[in-house]
Design a protein around this nucleic acid. Structure first.
Lengths: 191, 191
DNA sequence: TGAGGCATGTAATTTGTTACATGATTAT
DNA sequence: ATAATCATGTAACAAATTACATGCCTCA
């Protein structure tokens, strides 16, 4: 079980509803985990049934009510046990890299386009992450913050996200340029 | 279908058996895809049934015979169609980052240990990747190679792997140091 | 003689994904 | 009116993980 822990970790930052978590997993936590909305709703239900989180109905005006969740003591215990267990290797699955790997025998044009798209997405994410870092550390500079603040977990994981997005952007642009120049030189695309 | 394309792309580099592919997916292709051995055997069987690869029995002395696979024309067509299709976002699932995200409420000691382990794995992979780059480009320097060689796909995807591993190593070491210093300062671990 | 690499799977279970479904409110 | 955002799911299907199973050969 794995999504379970990602959800628990995300809920440490505050009370969130399923819907809010989908947003967080879409941009923030996408940092280190991906999950579809339906997975999150299902997992929250299971987590509550297992007593690892507690839900609380929040009545809203002007929009549908929502159910927000908090990690329980048992949930914290589950996380502690998880943290003490050896980490599984990073799971990565990248469509675009597969295409680049095979690009020699393929039409590079659509691949180049996708590289540009990915570069722009990475740049956008990077900006979001950097804003988040600023918000988290407030007045302090990074070094001071990391030395003195109580809650640095989200900051540290966000730093990983920044690194990933920065490198992604750079690699995509570089690769697109390389492929583009070769295309221009040979004049033609499909082999 | 996705693993399918990763396998086809890997098989463009040469004829491989299921067992060899497990090695490649463990270190080389781990670059952009992860798959368990059983998945690979199953996928190769399906790919052959669908006519996207052809298998060939290779009799060996001193070790069991193996079946090696080559991409067919139809397989290449499948890859071409795949490459022309919009890329799905990068899928990432990182246990260790989840732990770091939650570290404020947990015992940091095992997390720090895992960060060191991960850093060493990353360094090892980085070395493998850099050796691979050297082997691929032969005499040429990178720029010349990327301009002139026919087959640059594997080189380009390997560059992405290098970036990832380099950043992983740096982030792990930095994060471990930060957490370690805080532990030393507070003297105590679990909150 | 036992560990470890080579080589290939099956079967059961757990996860994840896709498509579908619903319904309210707000902004355009 | 219509689209977008908020909000939460179910059901069917596809994929991945885990555990198990087999058997040969080499090297220590």
């Amino acid at each position: 079980m794995a999504l379970r822990h990602a959800v628990l970790a995300a809920l440490l930052d505050g009370e969130y509803s399923g819907y809010q978590l989908t947003k967080i997993f879409d941009i923030g936590v996408s940092n280190f985990w991906y999950a579809a909305p339906q997975q999150l709703y299902a997992e929250l239900t299971k987590l509550e049934a297992d007593g690892l989180v507690t839900g609380r109905e929040v009545v809203q005006r002007g929009r549908p009510n929502k159910r927000v969740y908090t990690v329980t003591e048992a949930g914290l215990g589950e996380l502690a046990a998880f943290a003490a267990t050896p980490a599984k290797p990073l799971l990565i699955r990248d469509d675009l890299a597969v295409k680049v790997h095979a690009v020699d025998l393929l039409d590079p044009a659509p691949v180049i386009e996708q590289l540009h798209d990915r570069a722009m997405e990475a740049a956008a994410k990077l900006e979001v992450f950097e804003q988040l870092l600023l918000r988290l550390r407030g007045e302090l500079d990074e070094e001071t913050f990391l030395r003195q603040a109580e809650h640095i977990g989200p900051y540290l994981s966000c730093l990983a996200g920044c690194r990933l997005e920065r490198e992604t952007r750079a690699w995509c642009l570089e690769t697109a340029r390389t492929l583009g120049e070769r295309m221009a030189r040979t004049g033609r695309e499909t082999p």
